[in-house]
């Protein structure tokens, strides 16, 4: 990536954003009728689709049954056409398994699983187009889908990335900025209670800069939350008005 300037002299990034600006977020809830809950999200060019089934009876692998809480099962996948290079992506590969595990840990922390003993909640997420911040798009889409399914959660979970490139922190980095090789941080947090659910860093970052980057990512999560919350409120009030009208 030599020669490619991530931040211009005027302080703009390649896609024209400022350093602490999010990409445009579009969301829709209830995109499928068969699933208990579903959502679609676009964060810039990253697009993700999430569906939630459950809580339901554990059908396969009775051994997994927990007698005091529900089991959360996550599956992450990427569409063959999601990246620049077309390639069939088996679901069981290492990277998507790791992603599935992170998603499971994230959602086990926020869903009130104690209310559904001996049942199972399935969360399936698929990336339709990958342009950086895949995990974030997945978490945000899955949050909307879980809310749509009417499964109790302690709070929203919102995720955001922040990188540290050319000595300045950058919010919500895209694929080009990700592949520049600079360190970046992925944060999933509960925006209202300000608790961090997941924190991941991909390479070394000087401890002095850590706080700056983390603060920026935290702010990004809250910005994402504001957008998601507006979508949820619109969706709920619209559906509620329709249902009470009849």
């Amino acid at each position: 990536m030599a020669g490619l300037e991530i931040i211009s002299d005027q302080g703009y990034r390649i896609d024209g954003r400022r350093s602490s600006e999010l990409r445009k977020v579009c969301a829709r809830m209830g995109v499928f009728t068969q699933a208990d809950g579903s959502a679609y999200i676009e964060q810039g060019n990253t697009k993700a689709l999430a569906t939630v089934y459950g809580p339901h009876e554990v059908r396969k692998g009775r051994g997994k049954i927990q007698h005091d809480r529900a089991v959360v099962n996550c599956q992450f996948s990427m569409a063959t056409f999601s990246t620049g290079e077309r390639k069939s992506r088996p679901k069981g590969d290492r990277r998507s398994q790791e992603m599935s595990m992170h998603l499971r840990q994230t959602f086990e922390a926020v869903i009130v699983t104690e209310l559904f003993p001996r049942s199972q909640i399935d969360i399936y997420v698929q990336i339709l187009q990958a342009d950086g911040g895949n995990y974030c798009a997945c978490v945000n889409a899955a949050t909307l889908a879980v809310i749509d399914a009417g499964i109790p959660m302690k709070d929203y979970v919102c995720a955001c990335t922040a990188g540290f490139i050319q000595d300045s922190p950058l919010l919500d980095i895209s694929y080009v900025e990700e592949s520049a090789g600079a360190p970046f941080l992925t944060v999933a947090m509960m925006p209202k209670s300000e608790q961090i659910v997941l924190l991941e860093m991909n390479s070394r970052l000087h401890a002095d800069n850590m706080e700056k980057v983390l603060d920026l990512a935290t702010q990004g999560c809250k910005d994402v939350f504001a957008v998601l919350d507006r979508h949820v409120r619109d969706h709920v009030s619209e559906s509620h008005a329709l249902m009470t009208a009849s």
Binding site: K192, V232, R233
Partner: peptide, 8 residues
């Protein structure tokens, strides 16, 4: 509606 809430 009168009192709309979201998780949290």
């Amino acid at each position: 509606p009168k009192h709309l809430v979201t998780p949290g």
